[in-house]
Amino acid sequence: MAETTATPVTRSLIAPARYVQGRGVLADLGSYVAPIGSAPLVLTDAVVRRMTEATVTESFRRAGLPVRFEEFGGTPTAAEARRVAETVAEHGCDVVVGLGGGATIDTAKAAGDEAGVRWVSVPTVASTDAPTSALSVVYTEEGAFESYRFYTRNPDLVLVDTQLVADAPVRFLVSGIGDALATWIEARAAQRASGPTMAGGLATHAGIALARLSWDVLWENALPAVEAVRRNLVTPAVEAVVEANTLLSGMGFESGGLAAAHAIHDGLTAVPHTHHLAHGEKVNIGSITQLVLEAAPSAEIREFVEFTARLGLPTTLTEAGLGDVDEEVLRTVVEAATAPEETIHNLPFPVVAEDVLDALTSVEALGRSVRAEAGLPEPQAPEQHRVKVPTARMA
């Protein structure tokens, strides 16, 4: 009898080497960077540099490190990553510190990878789960999704000063909540399909548990955290949401799996109508679309729509700038979202473009219906609306 060789099933979990979070920890950045590299380059934009330069410079001085700032170009393109990598090589830097939002941090990771040096994430907002991951999202100059770029390791350090997060506009935190809420929705779908994770292989129990924990923490703490950040306060709820948005969601999406929500996000970047939305705001439209597409129970969908509407996340096509567009615009979104390489194919059933189009189109009426039933204002521009949180939560 001929021998057969079965491919072994592998499961994988990846994570940053160290995660540090707390009020005022930016002042200690130098002591955490010193064991990683002796010649850091700090990639940041002009606004963040003005806010943090004195603290970072003093922190590096106390750690015996030089400091070199490099201004981020604004869009995480492949060309921008190459430019920064050339600067790293030119000045002999051995660690890139991405200081700012997700786009800056994704570019710092890409530049570090190209230059062959280590990298550190220092998010000043909790708007995405990019800081912890071993990948970057690459965009075109026009702001459309281009590709994922994967690395062999996660950042050596992720450091989050929660006072900086609380001092930032509340919309950043809300966007991060939208991004993080998708983590469990997508991970459980990928698990049902036995689909691959961004870490490679199948999800571990730990990866799935982290995705679910992010969801639970947000349902418990999101609304009080948003209220606190409106007043620039760091409360236990804010600390919990920052951890959920950054660490739990970051590890949960990467080691749990992505599905339709982020694929729809990628599709939404393909049309200019949605460019006023932040990453997590587009992801929330994707989460609702995925719930409809996978035929989640109606009560669960409506609870999710109401909860995210109360947070101020967009729950209708109108808020996304797509309320009165021709069908061809939506077809452009769907075509990009269902590209062969997209994560929407991690759903536990074959994905048909027409089904995705209908699910996306249904978001408008669904969102309006839920808002009317809950007594929320009619959808207009993306604004934050805070009312009482529903008590039920999705399984």
Rank of each mutant, 00 (worst) to 15 (best):
T4D: 10
A6C: 07
P8L: 09
L13G: 12
A17I: 10
A17P: 06
R18A: 04
V20G: 07
V25Q: 09
S31M: 11
I36G: 01
A39S: 14
T55R: 10
A63C: 06
A63S: 08
G73F: 04
E80H: 02
E86G: 15
H91K: 15
H91N: 12
V96D: 00
G102D: 11
A110L: 10
V117R: 03
R118L: 15
S121F: 00
A126E: 04
T128E: 08
T132P: 08
S133T: 13
V137L: 10
F145P: 01
E146R: 12
Y151P: 05
L159P: 00
V160D: 13
V165T: 00
G178P: 14
L181V: 15
A187E: 09
P224I: 12
R230V: 01
R231W: 06
S249M: 14
A261W: 09
A278E: 13
N284V: 06
G286F: 11
V292P: 03
A299W: 13
E300N: 07
L313N: 08
E319C: 05
E327A: 14
E327G: 15
L330V: 11
A336H: 14
P340R: 07
V356C: 01
V356W: 02
T361D: 08
S362W: 10
V363G: 03
L376M: 03
E378G: 08
P379W: 08
P382C: 06
R393Q: 13
